[in-house]
Design a protein around this nucleic acid. Sequence first.
DNA 1: ATTTGACCTGACTAT
DNA 2: GGGTTCAGGTCAAAT
Length: 293
Amino acid sequence: MSTSSDIARVEVRVDQPLNLPLTLESGQAFRWHEADGVWSGFIRGELVTLERTDDGLSVQCSVPAVPGIQDAVQRYFRLDDDLPAIYEELCKDERLSEAIHQHWGLRILRQEPWECLTAFICSQNSNIPRIAKMQESLANDLGQTYTLGGIQRQGFPTPEALASAGEETLRTLALGYRAKYVAKTAEIVASGGLDLYTLRETSYDEAKATLMELPGVGAKVADCVLLFALDKLEAVPIDRWVRRAFEEWYLDGEELPYDKLLAWAHQTFNPNAGYAQQYLFFRRRQAKDKSLT
DNA sequence: ATTTGACCTGACTAT
DNA sequence: GGGTTCAGGTCAAAT
């Protein structure tokens, strides 16, 4: 039973644009819960709550986690990215200017690689509510319990936990055919066959090739993990929406394979291609019912 | 080298 | 309730 003395509150100053609900529900991360303006979720494996304040974020966490929590929050929201400068550069493009003004304060997150990898293996042929449901099922059945004040949540399961659960168990958690991919990838990571954190230090191309050796990881899933967890802002996950945005808005309807689109995006938007992708994704998605061109 | 179809299941939207 | 559905793809087999 935890008491209030187990909890610390830390203020994190935010001088950058940050739309908290938009960022946490943007389909990068799938395990943030909101109640009365308080968000609960995990940062660096610790259960925390977040609230937006006038000049930043008010963070609650358990006392043993306090050292470094400020730094962890800043890193999670990539507050070291100078978003106004990125906006200024990207706003030279008319579509991006629209997208940015509509979704001001949407940030790219720096997530934990293992959870992010699992989430996007599960994302294929699925939709955001369902991905969230799968992630929650995995945590509820196979994760460790954390409490913070009156909040109780399960942490995301380790590679070891998912590997020992096995494909059949994962199928009972409604992962469908993705169960095999998650189980096999978990085995590889748990057995030390791949250290995801070292991929932060390697080049985009090398890290991507390594990820794509994993079962269930193709170019798109790899780019998601590279962008949302592995510090590769040149990664451009090209899903249905981003593909439509590129082809309809920039390429006169021409259809191109993934790698051609990626090369075009790099040429057009680097060094901020990842941010460009994130804003165009939202802009195109929003336009789906309005027949905007 | 490119194209095609199977794949699990829940959400969604229009009959 | 169902469905020539659709959903932030991947893989292996067949051109």
